[in-house]
Design a protein around this nucleic acid. Sequence first.
RNA 1: GGGUCGUUAGCUCAGUUGGUUCAGAGCGCUGCCUUGACAGGGCAGAGGUCACUGGUUCGAAUCCAGUACGACCCACCA
Length: 894
Amino acid sequence: MSTSKTYNPGQSEDKWYHFWEENGCFRSTPDERPPYTIVIPPPNVTGRLHMGHMLNNTIQDILIRRKRMEGFNACWVPGTDHASIATEAKVVKMLRAKGVKKSDLSRDEFLAHAFKWKDTYGGIILKQLRKLGCSCDWDRTRFTMDEDYYQAVIKVFCDLFDKGYIYRGLRMVNWDPEGLTALSDEEVIYKEKRGKLYHVRYRIEGSENEWVTIATTRPETILGDTAISVHPKDTRYQHLIGKSALVPLLNRPIPVIADNYVEMEFGTGCLKVTPAHDINDYEIGQRHNLETIDVLNPNGTMSKAARMYVGEDRFIVREKITEDLRAAGHIVQVEDHINQVGHSERTDAIIEPRLSLQWWVRMEDLSKPAYKAVMDDTVKLFPKKFKNTYQHWMENIKDWCISRQLWWGQQIPAFYLHSEKELEEENRQYFVAPTPEEALEKVRAATGKNLNPNDLYQDPDVLDTWFSSWLWPFQVFKGITDPDNKELGYYFPINDLVTGPDILFFWVARMIIASYEYKNERPFNNVYLTGLIRDELGRKMSKSLGNSPDPLALIDLYGADSVRVGILMSSPAGNDLKFDTPLDLEKNGLHSKLCEQGRNFCNKIWNAYRLVSGWETSDSAPTETESLALDWIQGRVAEVKLELEDHFKKFRISDALLVTYKLIWDDFCSWFLEIMKPPYGERLSGSTQRQVTDVFEELMQIAHPFVPFISEEVWQNLRERKPNETIMLTELGQVDPDTLDRQLLKDFEFITKAVTAIRAFRNEKGIKNNESIQLYVNTPSEDLFTRYNTVLNKFLNIEKIVFAEEGPNPSGTVMVETSKIFIPLPEMDLKAEREKINKEINRLESMLTGIEKTLGNERFMSNAKPAVVEKKLKTKADTHEKIKLLTEALESLG
RNA sequence: GGGUCGUUAGCUCAGUUGGUUCAGAGCGCUGCCUUGACAGGGCAGAGGUCACUGGUUCGAAUCCAGUACGACCCACCA
């Protein structure tokens, strides 16, 4: 037999994954069974598996495998997201490395490169997910830029435009000077930065030596100032309102105005107003009709309008202008200052607020049904705390900037007239339609002119990636492009969504919004938000910190099952998880105690299999002990199955794993198999062996969602199987709670307690395992000791059991509930034994005092629930009894 | 600045409706155990004023308030 002492995951994992795939085990098509559907949160097309994906997809795989075994038609739709800005940035970088500039390429040429890149590197992550064991229906793999998906996005854009939800507007946007595109508010990450607050004085026009001092963190924007503002009630500056100040270095006069926005307490109480580079300044500018001077180019260098430092980067200019201002006597003071600086989520560039013409989605009305659905638990969030977060975001929802100045993505279906190209951008007419032909129709309707396609040009921008992924749960079933199809009707709404809390707004909320708008229905019933994975210092795992281990290396090292167990072992629902791979991999080598625990678990299963498979059998009938133990383990399995149902219902996945782990390790291996081991040189009843195999099979079924590979390996080996048979398509039977033999479970628990207590006694007294002992038992349940005599003997090497009031002298005493067990010893330290018993009596007596005090309290008796009082009374009686027995034992010691 | 969550054994975390058989698990640690499943193992053991301070209650790790520390989310104070 090729059963090595340790389980070898590498061999079986690839084998079984191919087996499953070839046999179409992951495939789902609509049938008469109830569906259970999950759609993968589509990873970036050029992404690679990281620890977050591991957690996420392990959980999804556990859910889908379990449902599949519960008799559902389980469908897990995989796919990838085109990730417009992230992918475009990568392609641009790749081209640059080859000496090709994006600006030298036509749009089509660039897209050809991008698609090629996507074909080469895209979908790597999907292959990696196979290593993890993910049971996705790969035939359904989707991509957010698939032809039909593209059409769906365009269709939705046009539809929302026609409904008035989409508009084009000149507004302040978050500008990414590196990606050269606008971003939505959600794509801006604020980070605390240590900076300086510069106090700069401006001379009042027409005065010799009258100054006004403002405070700014961004002196380079002084060149774009068009006013200075003070608070209207600020008595310090009343005399200045209406006068003009001169912009330092440029000597350009700007008005001093009064606006409520200004905080009198901050800085000097005077604010320089730069409408082109700050959202608040822009609003002030609007109120006061100020001029807007845009001193920055899109790439973050100074523009011609700045008149100085033209073409130099804004951060270099910040240094330079500070020096020039100082030289000219304008710097009054420079203090340290901590403020929040926005960064691009994708490029990490510092965001510039910038006035520009973009496309927007009006969110307020559109989002109302989605708000309601979560608030009334039509869509449930796990853990619940995220409901608050969601509520807050929804109640303060702002319009969504959806245009991106990129090429990779769905191009905005808006058309302009070539003839108007000379006009200012915001003055050009535009026509929104899915195709140029339909746009021409609109042109005709609007202008009466008959034009041809060459007279039009399309908006060059593409749509935000999330504007396509918000359609994911239904467009993967063609819910937009073929709204009445059968598959959609069968699979949608999907059941559960598993994702990270970091994309609650980006994605989850918007999917709910889109679903109500287009399907008039929730997209999913439950959203399970996993925790974030942190390193051993508690920091978020991220690429920039380089603190994330490579999951594939971990799988190579420990096996996929082990990594699945490891990552789940300490990740309770929605709480963050500290992972334990060392930070300095080079120095310390890759290892993880958590994964080791997973590996050890697999090894335990493997060795249990080795034991069971090695048993020789006979035709004899099962012994009484065997029957008893079989009844018990079957009862335990049933009990745990009920527990598991509850855990799964509440998405308590780690708890589900833990009870499974303990069922196999403790109940099955440590107790049951130890009882079942045939005595030296003997054979096991064939009937018993078959029943043990049944139990083992059922355990493998229960474990299968967590550890799919080893459970399949062992299951396949336990019995002869048909060629296509697989554990993953077996059905997990249901348990009727009423059939549980609770008395048996309780009896067995008593026996295990007795075994443990006597083992401890042996340990304490240094009695070797090969020395047999005698038990003199004083117990109200003699029948139990009789019935379980052989079980006790399996563990304890008992010479005989005698029922008696007390044991011979000298004997040690072991208490198990209200049973007293005397164990004779040839020599015993009587003093130590007396001390031990006394200590126990003292403990029990103080406990009894407490109980009596409680019971003597009238208010307890009148307020506490009857069950609690009853329990208390029973504890009192038991404690009394134990004290009595121990006192007797003490007396018998002399 | 607003909000959410957390603080339990050396470490990572459970503790779901308040009830002295709930103070737990795993890892780590200590002692003992090597011919027949597994040292990646077995058996046993030590370790905690449940962050702090008050309050509610007959009774608090659990409920309430405050404090401290930490994490995360949101927010336009230059």
